[in-house]
Simulated assay, not measured.
Amino acid sequence: MEAKETLAMVKGQAEIWQQMYAFVDSMALKCAVELRIADIIHLNGGPITLRQIADGVDSLSPDIPYLARIMRLLVRKNIFIEHHHSVDDDEETLYGLTEKSKWLLHDAELSLAPMVLMENHPWLLAPWHCLGQCVKEGGIAFNKAHGCGIWEFASKNLEFNNIQNNAMACTAKIVARGILAEYKDEFGCLGSLMDVGGGTGKLIAEIVKAHPRIKGTNFDLPHVVNTAPLHEGVSHVGGDMFEVIPNADAIIIKWVLHDWSDESCIKILKNCRKAIQQKSGKVIIVDIVLEKDRNDLFDETRMAFDLLMMAHTTGGKERTELEWKKLLEESGFGRYKIIKIPALQSIIEAYPD
């Protein structure tokens, strides 16, 4: 075997090993969030020792050698950073935050910690093991793992409902920043805005905070809005988007349509169209738009989300622009415009015929 061929074989082997154990990164990340390592460092005001991290962990007898091995991997992945300095002729290692670990702070204004906990929870990992079965015989991975769909599961399981609501709330605040940065002028003419599938109302609350004259409504399933906190200028309304959606000047629907099949999306969008009373009304879709040759910071994650929809939803998927265009046309929206924002998602502004 030639040296070039041998090198290619070894490289292929190494990459398969790396992919095989990619889950280790997720588990170490989850561990860091559960132990609140980033929060412990942050509360101390700067880099601290392993012993200080251990003292901050909620445990009477933390295993420091275990913690050291986890931190070694997280430093290798640039989640945390090591600082070395000498104390009485002994070298001491301190651990500090990076731009990555700042996203793991529980009480930060913008945080992905709740999302890390949700996506790596055993309840949401179980359906991934059913993907091969789904390819062979069809069906829904989440149903195969749990005996029902994700929304029914959430309605019956208060703990999971809370985990899911917290995760959706944290992403809503992040996406709201991107929306308000790139789309802020488009809200000024609206008297009322309906957030369909708005969860606990974080997104609509951020929009109304920036545009107080808007009458904001958060619309979601009763078991979701029943646990939603109060937001100034926002009303919570429980209902079913497949049945009827309350009237508004415009509708915003964030990260909802990717959860559903084309047939279900058409039902939702037709109900959105009925809810828009004025001719100037529009539907503001905030969702991923897949692009074949797009190579930005979020491209790999967008592709991963398409398989996430296979694992967790009833026929959901991420869509290309052509797929969005077809969906909108079949729902009575003859015109649309895509607006890029600094986030995983884009804005698809759709106008009824």
Rank of each mutant, 00 (worst) to 15 (best):
L110I: 12
T93D: 02
D88P: 02
C134M: 13
H83F: 11
D107W: 04
G132A: 14
N120I: 04
V116A: 05
P127N: 08
A108L: 01
P122V: 12
A141T: 09
P127Y: 03
G132H: 13
I140L: 12
H106F: 06
K102H: 09
W128M: 12
G139R: 04
L124Q: 00
H84A: 08
F142W: 10
L110G: 00
C130F: 13
H106E: 03
P127R: 02
H83Q: 13
K100G: 00
E119D: 10
F142C: 05
T93F: 02
T98L: 05
V116S: 00
C130H: 14
H129D: 15
L104V: 06
P114E: 01
L125Y: 02
G138E: 08
A141Y: 13
L105M: 07
W103G: 04
T98M: 07
M118H: 01
A108N: 06
L94Y: 13
K100V: 15
M118Q: 06
L97I: 02
P114R: 03
K102W: 01
L125A: 07
T98K: 09
L94I: 00
V135Q: 10
L131Y: 08
H83C: 02
E137S: 15
K136S: 07
H129T: 14
T98C: 03
D88V: 05
E109F: 03
K102V: 13
T93L: 02
G139H: 08
D107M: 00
I140K: 06
L94A: 08
E99V: 09
A126P: 00
L105I: 06
A141Q: 07
L124N: 05
K136N: 12
G139N: 04
L124I: 04
H85Q: 14
C130S: 12
W123F: 14
A108E: 01
P122L: 12
G96N: 07
H83I: 11
L104Q: 03
K102Q: 01
F142K: 05
E91C: 08
G138D: 08
C134H: 00
L110E: 09
H106L: 11
L124K: 03
N120F: 03
S101G: 06
H83L: 09
T98Q: 08
H106Y: 03
I140W: 09
D89Q: 10
V87Y: 11
W128T: 06
S111A: 02
M118K: 02
A126D: 11
S111F: 02
E109T: 14
S86H: 11
S86F: 10
V87H: 13
L131I: 15
H84K: 15
S101V: 09
D89C: 10
H121N: 12
Q133D: 15
C130Y: 15
A141R: 05
G96F: 01
N143H: 14
T98D: 07
L112S: 02
D107F: 01
T98I: 12
G132D: 13
G139F: 03
L94P: 02
G138M: 01
P114W: 05
A141G: 07
A108I: 00
M115V: 15
T98H: 11
A108F: 00
L104D: 06
P122S: 08
Y95P: 00
